[in-house]
Structure formats: structure tokens, C-alpha cells
């Protein structure tokens, strides 16, 4: 008898969780969720749940790291030990250190660091529950947290992953699609400026597939960007003075 294997994409083009190929998981984005931080944000993409917090600008430590003409960004992407199936060791793994770096570099290109010479801005991204796409969701939340903290930036940035599953390009792959798929490509952009701030590719894509994937990612990023703006303005409408009397 032939071995039965679960298909990731059905005959009528639906994915295992019932989504269309170009459909994202349900998203929830909120700004200003943590009282004790200077700026914070929360993002939920399907089962992925992430908090981001921003502290500062404050004095850079150790002192020799401070730049005389601009601020430095410290970024920590961390997955909680309960965020994955089975327990993850609570320390920073090699992977987390790498993701902290790529997220930091993406944010360095949007934050106007020259506004705060000699200081440091700390960004903490804590993954509460992981189900694929955490680096892009973490970056989306971190950029919103920076905006919530009132730190001047060129644009908000948002990110989403695209994958190749059973020969088809799909938007926002879930954990299972990510594991069994042929390729995974996280993309982050600043939509208004139109520049790509993060792009990684795991697996292989033909150049035609790459272009298709990038266009699909752009569509997803636009949706996230609108949600980010909504979350920000919602917060501001309730808290901002209507000019000085």
C-alpha cells in the first residue's frame, strides 16, 4: 500500500489551516501595552505572540560603546522558555543572537539616531509563543514600540515571511509549512520609503519565484503597516492634547 502523507496544500489551493495561498494569519497589533516601559507594542500573528519594549534614550553602557554623534541601538530578541513545544533553554542561543543582530540592523536604518548623541536605546523583543515568522513579527512590534516611545524615525517598518510549499509561493507560512516547505524568506520593508531593511532566504527559489515571493511579501507588509498606523493613532487620539490654549 502506498504511504499516505499529509498534503500541505489541497487540490483546491487551500493550506492546512484553510487559508488561501496569499492569505495571512489573523493579526492583532497593539501599542503602549506595558506601563513601565518608555514604549511598547504587542503583536499576534496566528499563534505567534510577541511583546516588544523600548527603554531610553539613556546613557550608553559600557561607556566606550557610546558614539559621540549618534545613539546606539541595543536589541535583544529572546524566546521565552515556554514559547515552543518542549522547553527551550532560557539563555540566548546562537540563533537568537543572530536574529537580535539582523533586527537591530533593520531598525538602525529607520531610527534617526543622530537625535540622541552619546546615548543608547534598548529594545527588548520577547517571544511569548512561537509559531513561525517570529523575527518579522518581532521587528514589526519593535518598530511600533519605538514609535510609541516617541523616538524620531524615518518610517515604521513591518515584516512578513513568504515560503515555498509544495512548489507554491505562500504568504506567512505557519510552523508546519515552514518545517516541511522548500523555502522560507523573511522580508521587512519601510513601506512609505519603499526600501527593504531585512531579507533572508532559507532554501532555494528561482528568480521568477523570488520576484513573486517579494511581491507577495509587499502585499502582506502593506496590510501590517496599516494595522501599525491604526494602533498608533488609536493610542494618540486618547492621549494627546489638542494644542496649547
Amino acid at each position: 500500500m502506498e504511504k499516505t502523507e499529509q498534503r500541505l496544500i489541497t487540490e483546491d489551493g487551500r493550506r492546512i489551516d484553510g487559508r488561501a495561498l496569499d492569505e495571512m494569519r489573523p493579526v492583532r497589533i497593539e501599542a503602549g501595552v506595558l506601563d513601565r516601559s518608555d514604549g511598547s507594542a504587542y503583536i499576534e500573528m496566528g499563534k505567534t505572540k510577541i511583546y516588544a519594549a523600548v527603554y531610553g534614550p539613556k546613557e550608553a553602557h559600557p561607556r566606550h560603546l557610546a558614539q559621540p554623534h549618534k545613539a546606539i541601538l541595543n536589541c535583544r530578541y529572546h524566546m521565552a522558555s515556554f514559547s515552543v513545544e518542549g522547553r527551550k533553554a532560557p539563555g540566548m542561543t546562537r540563533r537568537e543572537i543572530e536574529l537580535s543582530k539582523v533586527i537591530r540592523e533593520a531598525l538602525e536604518s529607520v531610527v534617526i539616531l543622530e537625535e540622541f548623541p552619546r546615548s543608547a536605546i534598548d529594545i527588548f523583543i520577547e517571544v511569548i509563543q512561537a509559531d513561525a515568522g517570529t523575527r518579522t513579527a518581532g521587528l514589526t512590534a519593535a518598530s511600533l514600540a519605538l514609535a510609541d516611545a516617541g523616538i524620531p524615525m524615518l518610517d515604521l517598518c513591518a515584516g512578513i515571511a513568504v515560503g515555498k510549499v509544495e512548489g507554491k509561493i505562500v504568504l506567512d507560512p505557519s510552523e508546519e509549512e515552514d518545517k516541511k516547505g522548500e523555502a522560507d524568506m523573511p522580508v521587512a520593508m519601510t513601506p512609505r520609503l519603499g526600501s527593504i531593511v531585512l531579507l533572508q532566504l532559507n532554501g532555494r527559489l528561482t528568480s521568477a519565484e523570488f520576484r513573486e515571493a517579494l511581491n507577495l511579501a509587499k502585499k502582506g507588509i502593506e496590510v501590517l503597516y496599516e494595522l501599525q498606523k491604526k494602533a498608533l493613532s488609536k493610542k494618540f487620539e486618547s492621549a494627546t492634547p489638542l494644542g496649547e490654549e
Binding site: F116, R192, A239, T240, L242, G243
Partner: peptide, 26 residues
């Protein structure tokens, strides 16, 4: 001209200013 922070627009002295709801002290 682009906005650098989230806030409310104040047109004053023929300039476009933004009044942020939160901002670090400079």
C-alpha cells in the same frame, strides 16, 4: 517633508510642527 514621530499636527508660524503625545526630553 515627512513626519518623524506620531503626534498631532500644529500649523504655526508658517511651519508644520508635530506635537508628540510622548517624547524623550531633549
Amino acid at each position: 517633508v515627512y513626519a518623524a514621530v506620531a503626534g498631532i499636527i500644529q500649523l504655526r508660524d508658517s511651519k508644520i510642527n508635530i506635537l508628540p503625545a510622548k517624547s524623550p526630553y531633549k
